[in-house]
Simulated scan of single mutants.
Amino acid sequence: MNDCGKVYLVGAGPGDPSLITVRGMELLQRADVIVYDRLVHPDLLRYARPSASLVYCGKRPGHHTLPQEEINRILVKQATAGKQVVRLKGGDPGMFARVGEEAAHCARHAIPYEIVPGVTAGLAAPLYAGIPLTHRGTASSVAFVTGHGCGGEEPPSWGGLAEQVDTLVIYMGMSNLPQIRQSLLHHGRSPDTPVALIRWGTWKGRQETLSGTLGNIEEKVRQQKFASPAIIVVGEVVAYQKHLAWFEGGGSDTLNKEDDLEQGVMG
């Protein structure tokens, strides 16, 4: 009999705790160890058993509580000890969330694992802001791209994206917004192309949407000191936001400080 535990790589959804999947909720209720990210809503941790160990491994720009290698080590160590381990990742684990690296590390050490999808912020945040990513007669294609390369990765092909895709959804792009904007303009996107930045998407009392165009969005960001975490949406569908917005201002949340997310005890 194999006494090894198992690692569950679970998508927590984009923020609103009610958007977690039923499977994800069930695994949180059974977990011995929960290793969770910065953008995981703390209400989700209420599903944990009193005896569960909570390990915070949040990452913010310029500051990583735990390096990826240490996260990988914790997953294997706890599963080898026979624990049921939930690695709770904001959004969907397969969308710019490094799930492939963590799954591969488990596989190399013969640790059983399961990947549980979640609702990604690139889909949910625009809808909570009233922006459909496709719309008949306006947009029939959408691309999800990262605006922040790492480890020597090639940057996105902005030329192909600008010319061939109706709607662009850009993750982790705030710090590179000037370069992204300039690249899209250089490759033919009009300065009048609508743009929306959605900060803390789906979080009650925290979500903010800043709308503009490729021509003026950079200046608006400076004026309003708009900062990450934010999803960037570029395309004509953004114009529907003024008619379809339904969520912002619709409630309050007791969570007011990022530091409230950063409470976990290494078990």
Rank of each mutant, 00 (worst) to 15 (best):
P67W: 01
I71L: 09
T80H: 12
L88Q: 03
R73F: 11
Y47W: 15
V86F: 08
A48T: 07
K77D: 15
A79M: 08
L45R: 11
L75E: 10
Q78G: 03
R60A: 13
A52S: 09
S51W: 14
K77L: 13
E70D: 14
G58F: 00
K59P: 03
R73E: 15
P42N: 05
I74W: 05
G62M: 02
G82C: 11
L54Q: 04
V85S: 07
Y56K: 04
A48K: 05
N72Y: 02
T80E: 15
Y56C: 08
G82V: 09
L88V: 02
V85K: 06
A79I: 06
V76Q: 04
S53M: 09
D43L: 12
P61M: 04
L88K: 05
P50E: 11
L88I: 07
K83P: 10
G62W: 02
P50M: 13
P67E: 14
H41R: 09
P67L: 10
E70C: 05
E69Q: 12
Y47F: 15
V85P: 01
P67K: 08
D43N: 13
S53P: 03
A48G: 03
K59S: 04
G58E: 02
I74R: 04
V86N: 01
S51Y: 11
I74H: 06
P67T: 11
I71N: 07
I74N: 01
G62E: 00
C57Q: 07
A81K: 04
A52Q: 02
V86D: 00
R60Y: 00
V76T: 06
V55D: 00
Q84E: 15
K77N: 10
N72T: 04
S53A: 15
S51T: 14
A52E: 03
R60G: 09
Q78K: 14
E70P: 00
T65P: 01
E70H: 05
L75K: 07
V86M: 06
L45Q: 06
R49P: 00
C57S: 10
P42L: 01
G58V: 08
K77Y: 11
I71Q: 07
Q68Y: 06
R73I: 05
E69S: 14
C57F: 00
R46P: 00
V85C: 04
R73H: 13
S53N: 05
A79K: 08
C57W: 00
G62H: 03
K59A: 07
L66F: 09
P61F: 04
Q68D: 09
K83H: 15
G62N: 05
V76K: 02
V55G: 00
L44C: 01
K59G: 09
G62F: 02
V55I: 13
Y47Q: 08
Y56H: 04
Q68A: 10
Q68K: 05
H41G: 12
P67I: 10
L66D: 09
H64V: 10
T80G: 11
H64E: 14
T80F: 10
R87W: 04
I74E: 08
